[in-house]
């Protein structure tokens, strides 16, 4: 992880849109009186969304003033959490490539190569047209569908370099590619056909009590003691 600093070029000011302001007031009201500072992360997150995916410095001060906390405290929070982007991100897509072990084993490095080629040599750098940026992130919780990337709020899973190229091309056109698995899997269901747990006996009830058949000595006993649970379930 690189040292995180505020970007040298900052806009002049920041203020919430009326809708966001109303939302912010509601959010602050969720916390007890005197504990308004607890709302700092949701508010900064909303400020980041409003600013096109990154958190400008005036927004830090705006949120800090709104909550009555010192600027340095807002600065601490913004630099601590890597989901707060401190530099401008691509206008069309900011690609967060998961590079944690499962994704890495399934080919995340090839995805990063695509990003380097198509977007920029280094993470957190804008592409030449300013429309794209990328970064490597830690596990986003889609290990079963590795490798994957997250763009804005959606995840794109089961990627190959070609699939990622297609997704990026779609974003470049302004289209919204289908989120989720890119190879037609339903959520994290097995690829192609189901290969495990296919025996109907697992769920049709025919196997209940079947284990008794393996223990001949239990056969008579079971008939004698009618109150045993195994017999109950048979009946």
């Amino acid at each position: 992880m690189a040292v995180r600093r505020l970007h040298p070029d900052q806009p002049h000011g920041f203020s919430f849109t009326p809708e966001n302001l109303a939302w912010a007031k509601e959010t602050i009201a969720k916390y007890p009186v005197g504990k308004e500072a607890s709302a700092i992360i949701p508010l900064m997150w909303r400020a980041q969304e409003q600013s096109g995916g990154w958190l400008p410095e005036p927004a830090l001060r705006y949120v800090a003033d709104m909550l009555g906390v010192a600027y340095i405290r807002a600065y601490e929070v913004a630099t601590f959490y890597t989901m707060f982007q401190l530099a401008p991100v691509g206008t069309k897509a900011h690609v967060q490539v998961c590079g944690t072990t499962p994704c890495m084993l399934r080919g995340a490095e090839a995805l990063i190569d695509v990003c380097k080629r198509r977007i920029s040599e280094h993470p957190h750098e804008l592409s030449e047209d300013g429309q794209f940026s990328w970064e490597e992130v830690e596990c986003l919780g889609c290990c079963a569908n590795a490798p994957m990337v997250q763009i804005w709020k959606d995840t794109y899973e089961d990627l190959t370099p070609e699939a990622l190229e297609k997704i990026l091309a779609a974003f470049a056109r302004g289209a919204q590619p289908k989120a989720g698995s890119q190879i037609g899997r339903k959520t994290s269901a097995p690829e192609g056909a189901v290969t495990t747990l296919v025996d109907p006996a697992l769920y049709d009830g025919s196997q209940i009590g079947a284990w008794r058949a393996r223990f001949p000595e239990l056969q008579d006993e079971g008939a004698a003691a009618g109150s045993q649970p195994a017999d109950k379930s048979k009946g």
Binding site: M1, A2, V3, R4, L6, E57, V69, A70, Y71, I72, R73, Y75, E76, T79, F80
Partner: peptide, 19 residues
């Protein structure tokens, strides 16, 4: 005087004032 703070995290943590 809430001016000093620790920014960043882990190995990149640094003590500074706001800007």
């Amino acid at each position: 005087v809430e001016e000093l703070g620790a920014i960043g995290r882990g190995e990149d943590m640094e003590i500074t004032t706001y800007l």
